[in-house]
Every structure is written in structure tokens, then in C-alpha cells.
Design a protein around this nucleic acid. Structure first.
Lengths: 192, 192
DNA sequence: GTCTATATACAGATAGAC
DNA sequence: GTCTATCTGTATATAGAC
């Protein structure tokens, strides 16, 4: 691994755990086994390093909606839920980092945040779309409001994930909660 | 208001928005219109000031479970949901602050965090208890697992609140989501 | 209790050798 | 590209007058 990458990875880890303000470049340099000067040679300033870290963090953020094309409608929704869940568990550290940034007024370059928000909204739209398609096909009950219910599914999913992210050891495991979520919020909508 | 309190309030606001590391005592002093030295006279160190802020923040955190005693069972659950929601909206700033701390490895005095966690678990136990009572009374469907379902209700509630806390302007308002949550996660459990 | 002045350490950032 | 040495500002913290 080249030095630049090593700096990025070290800074990424430290910013995420201690925050931007509490992470000094001296510590980054020491942890990455380079000199402070080298950090400045590569990134010009602490702020630039931070933006580079964020950009690199969201770079692998992607969703593949093609994967659901072949599925039946109620399964589509459950599959979207699983994909979302997997995505978060595979990116725990960076997701936790971004969430904590959203909760604060800290330095947040608009483009990175816009990208993450766009992804989230797009994903929610996919869920709402699948619900609507299910209703039109007569597979899901027309009683619910697809828009609101899709939003609730995503919010609940976020709640389950926040619990996992914060390490709150509840009575039910995240997997158990996910199962309960799918059974109550999706399966029960099926027209019998 | 005495000087000590003014310092606490100012520090509280600044720590919450900018984080511990990014908040200097010079700024706290200037915003509170006191000298830096006075902060040290009152609190000894920055770390002590921080702990004092946390202790003062959770001091008004309380729940009143007596209020639900007279209600019917499904209403009890909905009432608990409303109480939780109100509590968070009335304490947005500090709740947001605590949540962001749970997501990080930052300075977190164990007693404050333990207190907040205890409160949360106690509240979840109340919801689970109400669900179970409803099942035993034959008002709620025995199909669901009260433990897991109660945990899901709290998680979903958290998800809705996180959305409100982060300021994500979704298609549905928090109030609309809350209504959808109650109708899907509680009303639909009623034995017809 | 509250201040000004100061000590001391460390932060971000630069200069210049190699 | 990577280093050592150094500059400059600002951070936490203390001393001591009032």
C-alpha cells in the first residue's frame, strides 16, 4: 500500500472514532508512521485531508436495483430491505461516521452529504415503487398509503440499524428485529 | 442566572453542536461573557466541565409510567409511543447530542451513559409488558412474539426520530410516520 | 468570584535538505 | 516523496491582583 493510501486509511479511522476536531495531524502521522510534513505535501491542509477521506468513504457506496427486476412484488420489497441491511452492516464504520455527522453541525462538505442523501431517497423511492406495483397487481392490500408505508419501512430499518450501530444490546438481536420487521411491515400486507 | 449556570448552558450548546474536541474554552468564555480563568475556577478542567454538562443534561430525563395505569391495553401501547415521541421532541438537542456520542468513541463518562441506557431499556420493558398483558387479556393477537415486537416498536420509533433529528426532509412528515407506525405496529394486532 | 497576565504545550502549517 | 527543523497561533491551565 502506498503512503498516500496509508494516510487516508489512518485518518479515516481516527476521524470516525474521535471526530474531526479531536483528531490531530500529529496523531495521524504517528499512527500512519509518516511525518506530519508528508501529510501536508499530499493533502495541503487538514480540511483537504478530511474532504479526501469523505470522498473516499462514499466512493464504494452503490446500490444495484437491477437485481430485483425478476422477483415477484412482495419479495422485491423484502429483497430491498435485505440489500439495505447488508449494505449497512458491510459499511458499519463509515455509516456510523456519516450518521454522527448528520446529527451534528460539524464540517460537512455539501457534495458528500448530498450524495449520501440522494442515495437514501432513491432507495426509499424504490421501496415505495415496489409497494405501489404490488397494490396495482392486487397482491398487496390497497388499504395502506404506499408513500407513508415505504417511508416507515425505511425509518424502521434505520432504527434497527441504529440500535446495532450504537451497540445497544437489547433483548432481541438485530437479525431477529429484521425478521420481525419484514413479517409485520411486509408479509402482513399480503392479500390473503 | 448565576455565572456558573451561564457557563454550563453555553458549554452545553457548544459541545452539542461542535463536539468536545472542536469546542475551545476561549469560545465558551467569550460566548458566556466571562474570562477563561473563571471557567477553571468553577470546573477545574475542561474534562470536568464536560462531565458537569452531561450530568446536567440528563438530570431532567424522566418517564412517568403511572400515567398509563387507567388505560385499556392497546391504548397503553399507543400512549407509551406518544410519551416517548414527546420526550424526544421536547429534548431534541440533548437527545441528538447523546445519540451522536453513542455513535462515537468520544469521551463518555460511564454513569451518564448508563443512566440513559437504563431509561431506554426500562421503557422498552414497559412496552413489552403492555403487549403481553394485551395478549393475556385476549385483545391482541397471540401470533406475535411480544418481546421481539416491543423491541421493533422502539426501534421503529427511534428510526422515525432519527429522521426528524437529522433533518432529512422525506416525503412523509414525522407525524405522518408516527401515525403509520401506530396503525401498522399496534392497531393491526387487535383481535377482530 | 472575577479579572489580567502569563506559563507551557501542542496544534496546523512552512522551509529546505536529501 | 519523504524527512528534520522551525514558525506561528492558539489550546489548556496557573499565578496572583482585586
Amino acid at each position: 500500500m502506498d503512503t498516500r493510501t496509508k494516510i487516508l486509511e489512518t485518518a479515516s479511522r481516527l476521524f470516525a472514532t474521535h471526530g474531526y476536531g479531536s483528531t490531530s495531524l500529529s496523531v495521524v502521522a504517528k499512527d500512519a508512521s509518516v511525518s506530519k510534513a508528508l501529510i501536508f505535501w499530499h493533502f495541503e491542509s487538514k480540511g483537504n485531508l478530511y474532504e479526501a477521506v469523505l470522498a473516499r468513504t462514499i466512493e464504494p457506496y452503490r446500490i444495484e436495483p437491477e437485481a430485483i427486476a425478476g422477483l415477484g412484488v412482495p419479495d422485491q420489497v423484502e429483497h430491498l430491505i435485505d440489500l439495505y441491511y447488508e449494505f449497512v452492516t458491510e459499511n458499519v464504520h463509515s455509516v456510523r461516521f456519516f450518521l454522527s455527522l448528520f446529527l451534528r453541525d460539524e464540517k460537512r462538505p455539501d457534495d458528500s452529504f448530498g450524495h449520501v442523501l440522494d442515495m437514501y431517497r432513491h432507495y426509499r423511492a424504490l421501496v415505495v415503487g415496489a409497494l405501489r406495483a404490488g397494490q396495482e397487481a392486487g397482491v398487496l392490500t390497497p388499504e395502506i398509503d404506499a408513500e407513508a408505508h415505504g417511508a416507515l419501512i425505511l425509518s424502521s430499518l434505520n432504527g434497527v440499524l441504529v440500535q446495532a450501530l450504537t451497540g445497544e444490546t437489547g433483548t432481541a438481536s438485530p437479525e431477529r428485529l429484521l425478521r420481525e420487521l419484514k413479517s409485520t411491515l411486509v408479509d402482513r400486507l399480503r392479500v390473503q
